[in-house]
């Protein structure tokens, strides 16, 4: 099994395609950072417009912490594509290349093969997120400095103390990793049905885009569906950045407004992962390899 995992990782990281994702993430992040460094003032002014007409924000809100949040918000919509690029190719790519039949005629079970492949795509996904964290969080912290984090939510604003932010990012990245592994699992699942990688990649993205739209639309008939869509739960990393207040409306440092929601979403995602991977194994074990 360990040999299989090593080999799968070796294959992933010997392919040029793998590095597209890392380069894409780096390019996107550095461009945003460059833009904010050069012209952050006007962006800050836009954000710092009076809130609710009665309050104003004093200080520089464009610090490393807020920038990371903005980038996570933007990138976590795009990173699934980069995850799908590899995960949705894991089986279909081998089928397309013609190596799948050789792999399957080797002395290990299909279940082992799939688990090793899924583990390898998970490692890739996690490395991509670590890379994202290095660039979006640590590089931004280095370029823009740290400070309090000011966040606008749809019906209130949150101000987090400087020393109350970092651990939230740790949690958010762990959660985001879970969300991205769910995407990987979906791509992986779809990849067992195809003999080319484009199909499953496009299908994975389509599912995510479609579900995200359903998640975003505030139409009552769809609202009932929302709790069942994994995309709704994928953004629960944001919950780490909402803080509880006490009766005196003081934010309680170190608290999370709705930890149960994070736990629930995490459970939903874990169930999806188990479902997708389990489904892949079940179906793939019965599948005739004709490629």
């Amino acid at each position: 099994m360990w040999t299989l995992i090593q080999i799968e990782l070796y294959k992933i990281f010997r392919r040029p395609r793998t590095y597209i994702a890392f380069i894409a993430v780096a390019a996107l992040i550095t461009i945003i950072q460059f833009g904010l460094k050069v012209d952050g003032k006007s962006y800050a002014d836009f954000l710092m417009k009076d809130i609710g007409g009665t309050m104003e924000i004093d200080g520089n809100i464009i610090n490393g912490y807020l920038i990371c949040y903005i980038m996570l918000q933007l990138l976590l919509v795009h990173v699934p594509l980069l995850v799908a690029l590899i995960a949705a190719d894991m089986i279909s790519g081998e089928a397309n290349m013609g190596t799948l039949r050789l792999l399957i005629s080797k002395p290990f079970s299909r279940t082992e093969l799939l688990l090793a492949k899924f583990f390898a795509s998970t490692v890739y996904t996690l490395l991509l997120l670590i890379w994202l964290a290095i660039l979006a969080l640590f590089l931004s912290m280095w370029i823009f400095g740290t400070g309090d984090m000011f966040l606008m939510k749809s019906s209130y604003v949150v101000l987090l103390s400087e020393n109350d932010v970092f651990w939230r990012y740790a949690g958010a990245f762990v959660f985001a990793a879970l969300a991205m592994v769910t995407v990987a699992a979906l791509g992986f699942f779809l990849s067992i049905f195809a003999e080319n990688s484009i199909g499953p990649i496009v299908a994975t993205m389509s599912v995510i885009v479609f579900f995200t739209i359903l998640s975003t639309l505030n139409i009552p008939i769809f609202n009932a569906l929302k709790p069942y869509l994994f995309t709704t739960h994928m953004i629960s990393w944001k919950e780490f950045f909402d803080i509880q207040v006490n009766d005196a409306n003081e934010a309680i440092v170190g608290s999370i407004q709705n930890p149960q929601k994070i736990v629930n979403s995490a459970l939903v995602l874990v169930l999806h992962i188990i479902g997708f991977v389990g489904g892949s194994i079940w179906i793939f074990n019965k599948k005739d390899v004709l490629s």
Binding site: T3, Q6, R14, M97, G98, T99, L102, L103, S105, K106
Partner: peptide, 27 residues
């Protein structure tokens, strides 16, 4: 040991690397 239809291997790897990889897969 088998060659099944077209002898497809990992095109982005060298002959040596392919051979090594499949040798390890064969135990």
């Amino acid at each position: 040991g088998a060659v099944i239809e077209k002898p497809d291997v990992y095109k982005y790897l060298s002959a040596y690397e392919n051979l090594e990889l499949f040798a390890r897969l064969s135990g």
